[in-house]
Design a protein around this nucleic acid. Sequence first.
DNA 1: AGCAAGACGCGTCATTAGAG
DNA 2: CTCTAATGACGCGTCTTGCT
Length: 345
Amino acid sequence: MTMETVESQHDGSITASLTESKSAHVQTQTGQNSIPALAQVSVAGSGTGRGSPAVTLVQLPSGQTIHVQGVIQTPQPSVIQSSQIHTVQVAAIAETDESAESEGVIDSHKRREILSRRPSYRKILNELSSDVPGVPKIEEERSEEEGTPPSIATMAVPTSIYQTSTGQYIAIAQGGTIQISNPGSDGVQGLQALTMTNSGAPPPGATIVQYAAQSADGTQQFFVPGSQVVVPDEETELAPSHMAAATGDMPTYQIRAPTAALPQGVVMAASPGSLHSPQQLAEEATRKRELRLMKNREAAKECRRRKKEYVKCLESRVAVLEVQNKKLIEELETLKDICSPKTDY
DNA sequence: AGCAAGACGCGTCATTAGAG
DNA sequence: CTCTAATGACGCGTCTTGCT
């Protein structure tokens, strides 16, 4: 449980602090005169985990309650100094070139470049967030090198090392032993056993791979070097409940030679040898295309996720700024009442 | 129940920004 | 200059909702 205390300082800025409680009150002070609070805004903070924007309930003076997520609050000068904050916000959002701005001269080409620059949701959000601590940033993806598990190096020398779509590493040794290493786990603790069977009458050239560890979404994709691919067994996909009963809740995969129509998401990695024949070149081109499509597919998903997060953040910002605006208007009205000369004397 | 409209997510392609 | 990630745009399928 966290409590978010928001205070409007005498200079108009609003500070927020999180403490261990459930709700808080917002007190506004209007400078030396210490005018009693005009706008009481109840902020019920519900702290969330890392990476997800904190959701905050903001109760307006009118009694209306709004949900605020990932609040970005730049220090607010009072209404009298509003030009200053305007400059800051423009600089933060529009990514203007400071040097050019200071010089006051931007040639048309550069200006066109700036205007036509496509926004990066991650970049914009992170720049907005950099001003205010506590505002969640969009995480940078870890490079593949960072995710490489140390256990791979200590394994028995494998014939092949594959990487799944979930980042796990699969090593297939000469004897047919398959080991799975989870990058997120420590050392050999991440190893998971696979069993390979050829019982019954498998299709020609196919080996059933039973993956003992159930994945989160049940959809594993494998990068397989050479001329083989690992695909989810069709029977498992089509009749999961049936196969689950038959294999003990283990999804089934097949290692088989690639066909013309690869299942979606399955990519064949390049064999180390050089490619010469037209067929090999065609296979290489197909492999590259599939890899590119899969990467773009993942990138598109990630981009949509970032976009949604960005839009949510903007909506939250609008909600907060509306509250602040309302409060400042009331503050201004009060100051006007105090400072206005009496006419009836 | 059937249908249409809208929302939403996904995959793909084209384009661009940015890193090396 | 090249390569790759990020993003907009488009088409498609699915789901929800309101209407008949």
